[in-house]
Structure formats: C-alpha cells, structure tokens
Design a protein around this nucleic acid. Sequence first.
RNA 1: GCCGAAGUGGCGGAACUGGUAGACGCGCUAGGUUCAGGGUCUAGUGGGUGUAUGCCUGUGGGGGUUCGAGUCCCCCCUUCGGCACCA
Length: 858
Amino acid sequence: MKYYPQKLESKWQAFWEKKNLFKAFEDPSREKYYLMEMFPYPSGNIHMGHVRNYTIGDVVARYKRMCGKNVLHPMGWDAFGMPAENAAIENNTHPAKWTYNNINGMKVQLKRMGFSYDWDREFATCDPEYYRWEQLIFLKMYEKGLAYKKRTHVNWCEKCQTVLANEQVENGCCWRHTDQEVSIKEMDSWFLKITDYGEDILDYCDKLPGWPERVLTMQRNWIGKSHGAIIRFPLKDSDEVIEAFTTRQDTVFGATFLCFAPEHPMVREIIKGLPEEGDVLEFVERTLKMDRYMRTADFTAKEGVFAGRYCLNPATGEKIPIFVANFVLPDYGTGAIMAVPTHDQRDFEFAKKYDLPLRVVIKPPGQDLSEETMTEAFVDQGILVNSGPFDGQRNLGALDSIAEYLESKGMGYKTVNYRLKDWGISRQRYWGAPIPIIYCEKCGTVPVPEEDLPITLPLDLDMRPNGGSPLPFSSSFFETICPNCKGKARRETDTMDTFVESSWYFDRYTCPDYTEGPLDQERVNYWMPVDQYIGGIEHAILHLLYSRFYTRVLRDFGYLKVKEPFTNLLTQGMVCKETQECPEHGYLYPQEVKEDCCVRCGTRVNTGNTVKMSKSKKNVVDPQPLIDEYGADTVRMFCLFASPPEKDLEWSDRGVDGSYRFLNRIWRLVTDHIDEITKVPVYEGKDSLPDRLKAVHRKTHQTIKKVTDDIENRFHFNTGISAVMELVNEVTQFLNSKEKKDDTAWSIIREAIETSVVLLSPVVPHITEEMWEMLGHDECLITVPWPEYREDALEVENRLIVLQVNGKVRSRIEVPVSYGEDEIEAKALADERIKHFIDGKPVRKVIVVQKKLVNVVV
RNA sequence: GCCGAAGUGGCGGAACUGGUAGACGCGCUAGGUUCAGGGUCUAGUGGGUGUAUGCCUGUGGGGGUUCGAGUCCCCCCUUCGGCACCA
C-alpha cells in the first residue's frame, strides 16, 4: 500500500473538523493552556515563515492536549494596514474586498496544513465588531489622560504617506521601506501615554523568566532609563531659565557653553531682534530639512551656531555662551545640554571647532591634565578639581552630593530620564480604525459618545490614485454634529496605528462573540495570561512592548486581572535561503539559473549569502507547491527537523526529500507488517525477554523519555524527531536480522511502532492518524494520552565503561551495573590494551567515574 | 563605538550537569535488487598515515584550569543580530 499524503490528509482534516476536536471550552475544573502564535497580516498567501511559526505552535498545542491540558489555540487576522490600500489602487478593487479575499485564501492554506485551531474564535481586526471596542478603550484612555493630542515633530515616511511611531523607525528609515529615509514634520498627532508605564514595564523585565533574555535586553535598552539631574541655567538679561539634563552633574563646574537642539521652542524666542537672528534661523531651517538618517549619521559633522545670548553656569556663576547644535536631540532629556568639552569627546570637538573655552574639572589620579595640552576629552574617573567645595573628591562619589548641592540652591534636582517616548498612533491612512474624536469650533475636541460607537470606516469610498487617505475628502464621513452643542463639527480623519489592534487581540480571542463590552470577565480571566506565545524576533520591541503597555492599561480599567500578557515567549528564527546573483542582471530566481549560469546572459552566477527569504532577494520558496507535492506532514516535519526553533532555518529541497523518505519508511514499516503486528497485543512488560528484544523495548522507553523532555523543556523538536528515527531504525534492523520473530517479538515491535506513531503525531498528525487507524484503534490520536516511559524498561544489566590512559580513550569494557568502583578499577587495570598503554610505567592515579569511565594516569 | 548571540565533517545539525566528538538527516562512494529511470536495501563516509583489530590528529586562533575541555576562565579573529551623537 502506497503512501498518498493528499488523500489521507484531506480525510483526516475533514474528520477533525466534523468532530469539532479543536474547539476550546472554558472549564474551571481543568488546567488551561493558552497557546498562541502571532497572527498573520493577510497579504495573500502564507509564506514559509508562517508555516514554520504555526507548525511549532501546532506541535505544542497537540502535545499539551494529549497531556490532558484544556488547550486554547486560536487564529485570526491582523487585517488593517497599508498593503491593502496599495493593492486596491493597483488592482482597482477595494481594500476590504482585497483583505477578505486574502483571508479566505489563506484560511484554506492554513487548514490544508492541518493546524489545530479553534476556528470558531477567528476574527479579523478590520471588523467593526472588533475595532468598536478598541475605540471604546481609546475613549477611556482619553478620559484618563492616557490618550492626548499634541503638535510636535513627528517621523514622516513619504512612501507610507503617514506618520510613524519612534519604534517604527529603524536606522533612520521606515520599518516597512528600509530604503525610505524618514523626515521630520511638525504636525498634530495623537499619543498614548506609554511613558506612564515605562518604569513598571522595565521593572517587570526582571520578572519574565519565560522570555528570551535578548528580547528583554532590547526592551530595556529601548526604555533607556538613566539617572542624572536637571540643571537650571539662568538666561542672562532675562528671568528665564534653561533646563538641561545630564548624567554627569559631577562635571558641572566644567560646563563652558550650552547647546540647544534646533527644535527647542526657546531658540526662536531668545534670538528675537539680535544681529545673530538671521544666521540662527537659517541654521535651524537647514538642519530641520535634513532627514533623520542624515542628521544622526555618524559621518555627519557636528555643527552649530552662536545664538547671541549667554546664560550663567549655576555652579561657577560665570557667563557661558549659548549655541544651537545639530547633534543635540530634541526629544531626549530637555532638548538642551550643558557642554563640558574637557570630559566629553563630542563637546571637546565642538569646542575646538568654534574656539570655545575649556576647563578641566577631573584629573586622573596622580597625574596632571591641562587645558592647553589635552588633545581629547578625559572621560575616565578621577579626582575633582576647580570644583569649589568638591575639590579633592572622587568624581563618581560626588555625583549625589553635587546634585544635592544644586538642589539646595534651587539650581537643579536629581532626576531619572527615559529614552522611551509616548506612542504616536495617528496615521494619515484610510485602512485602519477611525479615532473616535470630533472637533467642534465652539467646544473644541470632543470625544464620540460611547453609544455612537463604532465609528465605522466607510466602505463606499474610492482610493485616491496618489495614495493618500480618502477620508479627509469624504464629507459624508467627516461632516458631523457636535455631541455637545449640536452644531456643525468635523470628525478626526486619522486612523489608528495597526499596532493598536494587535495590542489586545489575544484578550479578545477568549471571548470574540462578547457584545457587552471589550472583554467577558469570566472568560478572559480563565484563559489569560497566554501561557506560550510564539512569533518572530522582529517584534521584540514594537508589538511586544505595546502589548505589555495595553495589558497594564486594561488591567487598570478593570477589564483584566493580569499585568503581563505572555508568560512564556518563544522567538523563532527566520527561514533563510541562499541567494543567486548575476553580475549583469542582479538577483535571480532559481529557475533563472541553469548549470550555475544566468539563463539570459550565460554569465556565471555568484552564490550569495544565506539570508532571510524575501521577494526582493528572489530567494523565496512558496510552501503551496511543496504541500501539493509532498503533503502537509512532510513540510511540517522538515520545518521542525532542520534546526531548533529559535535558530534560523536554512531551507533545503534535499532536506524535504529526506523528511518525505522517512515518512515513507515508517509507513512501509507499518503496512508491510500490519498482519503480524495486529494479531498480537502490545507488550505488557511481564514476560522476560531475550537480550535483543530487551534492547528494542528499552529503546522504546528511552525514546519516550527523550521526546517528552525535548518537547516539554526545550522545544527541541529536531532532536525529538531524531530519536524517533533511531527507534524506527532499530525496529527495521531487528526485522531484517535473523532473530526469531515469535509473538513476544511482535508484541515488542508493536509497542515500538505504536509508540513511534504516537510520539510523532503532534509533528505529522495526518499520517499518524491513518497508521493508528490501521493498527486497529478507533479513537482519534489527538485524544490518546501522551505516553509515559517505564522506569523498569530503562534498566540495564551491563554498562559500557570507557577506559582511558592519560585522558585518551584506549579501550572499552562492559561491566555489570552492580560493580562498585573497586571492581571496575580492577577490571580496567586488567584490560589487555590498558596494560599495553601503561607499559610498565608507574600508575600515579586512577579516576573512576561511576557508570561512565576509568582514567588511568601514568 | 557599545551590548548580545554564535563559530563543530562536503552540508543542516547532535553532544542537556566537564567524561566515547560528529547522534539523526542530507550528500557522496561501493555493492545488492527480473535494477529502464526513480525508488529501495546493505556497507562505508572528519583529516592524515598504515600490513595492522593500529597510530597520530581534530570542535575559528592562542593561552590557561583539570586526571580529562566542543563544554569552564583569559586574550584575539570572524559572522550575525540589536542599539548607536542618549548628554
């Protein structure tokens, strides 16, 4: 009987669906296990990254279910976003139609993979029944001051035609368009006050043992907490004061000038009417025009301009000049810095360039340092000098006392600064959740009354050919009546960042049909938190940080009881493949290469690095043809077998063949011997066995132990699968051997084979169900309990002991397990080969490691 | 520049607490199979050396700790990832 994956996979998928086997029910008497993979953006087709992510999750879901857990394993769609708008313009369809078409297609693909989702909980975030609750949460945040609007400098991506959050800017470029530099625009924007929770989110980074350390490190760095002080510099000839944040208040006596960021609001104010005004304004405008990447690139020269004014160094009382400088960041600290050229390299270079004074305030212990001769800033620790009452102290030791000194004189205070800024969520896009706000000329900004929710996205709009949002041009959408004064008013036409949807979708899976509010207390409190979350490392900051923020907000609103959404996080590696590049024609698809040459020009192609699959590198492998050819089980198995989940997976067509061959091998093992196997019961562990059979029996139970450990503790499916392969090899070898095959032997073989089938079932659920049925079982494999190994089956009579002389392996002996150290040592020293290597030399020491080895030192 | 992860056969990867390095799979070699091909089965497969069931050598490089190091410590190199004028 041949293995036909397509036929048997659709048979079992239909069976599971009919029996509703993956539907989750709330049952407080059972231990819940909430497992989730990051939901996909419905781009059209599933790609290899999805296949890998969801296969890993499915194995865990099926395994936990077999272990008796009440498993929730949902799936849905991250359905708002730009690509729908672009596709709509290109294909002259509507984003909604395009999105729902894609969802339907991808759902078919996911079902074809045999994933064990509870499809009854599926939803798409573009459904008003989902985003209405998101709008409600926004209103509550607005009420509490957690959502606010301000005019500020924001990141703008020309290709997206919208504002981006700080988290969505990578190396100065848009996270979606890595070749599009982000520019700075001043505009009105809605923000969520994630900074209110920054400290708590940071604090809990130490309380998430189930998260990968590197993700936590990235989040800690992103929050960027630093201890320092705000120092107040009085503006000369004015009552105003300039505040500067520093972590080096120990160097305040050496601050010889002050720098503003060009964006700083005081800049325009203080230069009014001065001869320098024109120069300063010209410099500010020139700097603001630069895009963010150019401005912050390390090759960009540090530049500045004198602002024509002075302020007083509060420590020395001296007047120091004020500059505007391009390297000062507007949104870190206060946007103004005190410059200490002697002890900061940037300030040193700036001072040399503009011929500004230097004053040494820290000297290296036991050495001298002078302003005239120093060629770079002295940034190490040392002893304070020229620092009034603090002379002679060690600089680090004086950090606190200098802060206190400034504070006592009203010239500053100790503080903590964060790099984390509030989350900008306004998007000048159409395909997103509308922000439920109304602007009235009389009443100002007015929240939409709760009972008017949802503010639905109108579906009867045509996309604008230039790519902008049609909402500001749709009077039927934006024209409205003020809920307060009933006068004419205008709706907010910006929509929310799509990361808002994904910040709480995991909560909504627990009660997707709930109509009384965002979350059904009873159900959400039963299932949350997510026990295991699985997804790509690319969301280490973005989605995972926002979700932690939202969970805290929802908790404070009383919707949730948990503070952290995800107890355990597994970040799977990328799916990679080598690239091929023609010197003439750039990256090539595999079919464009014949015998290592470009089909177009015949030039020899260069095989490039193995990198993440992407369309632009033309190294993508579409899973669908593979599923069609080999079946879902083979694709699932290869994804798991090629490498452990947290590492990158290198795609290999040959490797897929190997997985397919193995499935054929175990299939033949079952079908070729089905009569002999099914006529005997599974070995019960009672009859005594000849050595060879005992070895098979032992291997069976060793394999259970190994596979369980690999899944339960490490998610190392690759070694688990290897272990089952070994067991199958052992059985095959036994069957090919001349050993007698009586009923006892067949019952041992039955045990080994059935164990292999059960252990493999989370990985390759279809073929194993089919074999399980052939083996005479009528219950579904998913309801079979996960096997436990028998301790007594693991016992051995003899143990292999490795014999070493001076640490080199020279011989091996078998000894009974009952042997003590002395007996093993005696046996080892009596070994012929060991005697030969001792060669009459005096034995200095003999090390005996129980159960393992003997090392003779001569 | 800073932080982190990783470097093991021709390839993907094993080796979990220091104890037989290379499990398992791919590829390759030889052979079997009424063997067209594909498939499948058996044996072999880190390198060197050899008459030898042998010996030497070997986990990016160099030191060290240890009876014993892929594993622990120090220095260096390479690759990948994150952050990067953060005051």
